[in-house]
Computed example of a mutant assay.
Amino acid sequence: MEDCNVIKISSRSAAYFLTFTMSLTLALFSQSLFAVECKGMEKLACERQDACTWVNSYKRKDGVQVSGYCRSKGGKKSSSSSSSSSTSSSTTNSSN
């Protein structure tokens, strides 16, 4: 019996550890959960969601047509929307 190593922890320490572990797990996986929220939505449903934005269909440089899709807006609303607008307009103008 003396060979067994038993670690004794208090119930308070166990509660702190459990709370920390759950908080860390939630923090790590919450971003992926929010990103999936918009995936696969139809255009009208996507446009009704504040966290989502609709990306119109476009043609890539290699000629492949990409269908429109719904995606998460992400954290930077003002800078990402202005950069995506200029990117899509420049892509559209260069393909014409």
Rank of each mutant, 00 (worst) to 15 (best):
S83V: 13
F34P: 00
T21L: 15
S57F: 01
L33D: 05
G40S: 01
N5H: 06
S30R: 09
A35C: 08
D3P: 02
S10Q: 03
K59P: 01
C52I: 05
F29C: 07
Q49D: 15
C52M: 05
C4E: 13
S88A: 06
V66Q: 08
V64G: 02
R12Y: 02
D3E: 10
K43E: 15
D50S: 07
F34S: 02
V55G: 08
S83Q: 05
D50W: 00
Q65W: 07
E37M: 12
S57Q: 08
S72P: 10
E47D: 01
S11A: 13
N56K: 14
Y69F: 13
S86P: 05
L33Y: 13
L26T: 14
S80T: 12
D50Y: 06
N56T: 06
F17D: 02
E2T: 02
I7F: 09
S81A: 12
S32C: 12
D3T: 11
S57T: 04
G74R: 10
S10G: 11
V64A: 09
S89L: 05
K73M: 11
Q31S: 05
S88I: 08
S32T: 11
S79E: 10
C52F: 03
S13F: 01
S67I: 02
R48H: 12
V55R: 14
E42S: 15
S83T: 08
Q49T: 02
C52H: 06
L44E: 15
Q31V: 00
G74M: 08
S79T: 10
L26K: 08
S84Q: 10
I9W: 05
A45Q: 11
T87F: 13
D3H: 12
C46D: 02
A27L: 12
E2G: 09
S83G: 06
K39W: 08
L44G: 10
S67E: 09
S72L: 05
N5R: 12
V66S: 08
